[in-house]
Amino acid sequence: MTSTSAPRIAVIGAGPGGLTCARILQRHGIAVTVHDRDAGPDARDQGGTLDLHADDGQIALREAGLLDAFFRLARPEGQEMRQLDPAGTVLFHHVPEPDERFKPEIDRGVLRGLLLDSLLPGTVHWGRTLRAVTGPADGPRQLRFADGTTLECDLVIGADGARSTVRRALSAAEPRYTGVSFLEAWFQDVTTRHPDLADLVGQGSAAAADGERGLFAQRNGGDHVRVYVIQRVPADWIAAEGLTVRDTDGIRARLLDRFRDWSPRMRRLISDNDGLYVDRPIFALPVPHTWEHRPGVTLLGDAAHLMPPLGVGVNLAMLDACELALALARHDTVDEAVRAYERTMLPRSVETARALDGAAEHLLSTELPDFAGAEQS
C-alpha cells in the first residue's frame, strides 16, 4: 500500500471538518489538497454560531495549533442559555462563569476564516464540484469534477456534508427527513433596531416550545441574531401551501397563525426579521450508518454521520478530522491509517447517532434542559 510519507490526499469539502484535517496534516508535513464546490470563501453565508466543546472540537483545534487563536475570537458569553415559555417567561437561566470555557461560541464564518488562514497558500481549490469517485478497489482513486477535469489520488476524504458525493463510493445510504423543519430568520443590528429582542435573547441563546412548535434564538457576532422557527411539517410545506421561499409576507402570515397562542413579544421573533426566511428541513442518515472498509476512500463529519442539529455535528466532524490526520501521520501506510481511524470513528458515531435518533422531536419539547438543576441566576 501507499506509504504515508508521500501520499496523494484529496479532501472534498472546505467546511470545519475538511479544513481541520488539512491543517493537521500540513502540521505533520503531509501534503494535501482541498476541493470545494463554492466559487470562493465568500460565495455564500456560512450559517450561524457554533459551540466548540472542550472534549472534542477544542481537542482538534489544539492539535491544529489554533486553540489560543480560537479563544481570542470566541465568545464565552455565548454560553448563556435561557429557557422560555410561549408567554416569554424565563423558566431557566444559565449564566456562564467569567472563566467558563467548556463550549464558547464562534461564528461559522469566523472559524472557517481561522482555518483557511492557517493553511499553506494554494491548498484550497474553489469551484470544484465533484461528480464521482472511481478507480480500482486497490487504488489509485480517480476524482471526476463537473468542469471535466480529473484528479488521481491515493486517498479521498469525504468531508462534503449531508449530500456527500464521496459517500456513494462507500454506502448507498441517503439522508431521510426527520419530520421536523427549521425556518431561519435573521435580525441585524439588534441593539439599535431590535432592542426588545436583544434583551429577550441575551448574549447566548433562548429557546421556547409548546410541544408542537418551537423557537430557538441565538446571538451571533456582529450584533446579529438568528432565530430558528421549529415545526413538525412536511419537508415541502412551503410549496404545498402555494408559496415560495421568497414570499416573505405569505410565509409570515402562516407562521403568525400557527403561533397565534404565543405572546406578542415572542411572535416578534418570527415577524420582525430583516429579509427572507431560509428553509432548512432537518435530515439525518439512517441509524446505524456504517460501511465496509474500502481502500482509498473514507468519510468524516456529516458525510459519515448526519444527525439532528443538537450541538454535536461540528464537534464530531472536527474530532473525526483530528483523529484521521493523526492516524495518517502515525501509521506506515494510508490503508493502515484509515482502518485505525474507522475502527474508532464508526463505533463512536453509531453510539451518538443512536442516542440522537428521533431527537429532532426534542426540539419541540417543553421539558427543561438537562442542566436545569445546575446553578441558576
Rank of each mutant, 00 (worst) to 15 (best):
residue 375 E to W: 12
residue 52 L to C: 03
residue 361 E to C: 09
residue 286 P to T: 14
residue 93 H to C: 12
residue 131 R to A: 14
residue 356 L to A: 05
residue 319 L to Q: 01
residue 15 G to R: 06
residue 95 V to E: 10
residue 258 R to S: 09
residue 345 M to N: 14
residue 59 I to Y: 01
residue 60 A to I: 13
residue 16 P to N: 12
residue 5 S to R: 15
residue 129 T to I: 02
residue 327 A to D: 13
residue 140 P to I: 05
residue 22 A to V: 04
residue 125 H to K: 08
residue 87 A to E: 12
residue 213 R to S: 05
residue 311 G to L: 13
residue 82 R to L: 08
residue 70 F to T: 09
residue 341 Y to F: 15
residue 174 E to H: 14
residue 79 Q to P: 00
residue 180 V to E: 01
residue 108 R to A: 04
residue 115 L to H: 00
residue 276 L to T: 14
residue 242 G to K: 08
residue 10 A to E: 08
residue 288 P to N: 10
residue 277 Y to Q: 08
residue 244 T to Q: 03
residue 339 R to S: 05
residue 4 T to L: 11
residue 271 S to Q: 08
residue 11 V to R: 04
residue 59 I to D: 04
residue 208 A to C: 07
residue 10 A to S: 15
residue 174 E to D: 09
residue 154 D to K: 09
residue 101 R to T: 07
residue 365 S to E: 08
residue 312 V to P: 00
residue 352 T to R: 15
residue 32 V to G: 03
residue 318 M to W: 04
residue 245 V to A: 11
residue 340 A to R: 08
residue 359 A to E: 07
residue 3 S to D: 10
residue 191 T to W: 03
residue 131 R to D: 14
residue 191 T to N: 06
residue 150 T to W: 08
residue 183 L to C: 04
residue 220 N to V: 06
residue 220 N to Y: 08
residue 226 R to G: 02
residue 338 V to H: 01
residue 227 V to C: 11
residue 312 V to I: 11
residue 222 G to Y: 04
residue 126 W to G: 04
residue 289 H to P: 11
residue 109 G to N: 11
residue 191 T to M: 01
residue 23 R to L: 02
residue 362 H to R: 13
residue 50 L to P: 04
residue 260 R to K: 10
residue 31 A to F: 14
residue 63 E to Y: 05
residue 157 I to Y: 04
residue 199 D to W: 02
residue 307 M to I: 15
residue 29 G to W: 11
residue 335 D to N: 11
residue 350 V to Y: 12
residue 161 G to S: 09
residue 276 L to A: 15
residue 130 L to M: 10
residue 268 R to N: 05
residue 366 T to D: 00
residue 376 Q to N: 12
residue 5 S to M: 14
residue 135 G to Y: 03
residue 4 T to K: 14
residue 253 A to G: 02
residue 353 A to R: 13
residue 9 I to S: 12
residue 81 M to W: 14
residue 229 V to D: 00
residue 20 T to W: 01
residue 302 D to A: 10
residue 312 V to Q: 15
residue 1 M to R: 10
residue 9 I to C: 06
residue 174 E to G: 06
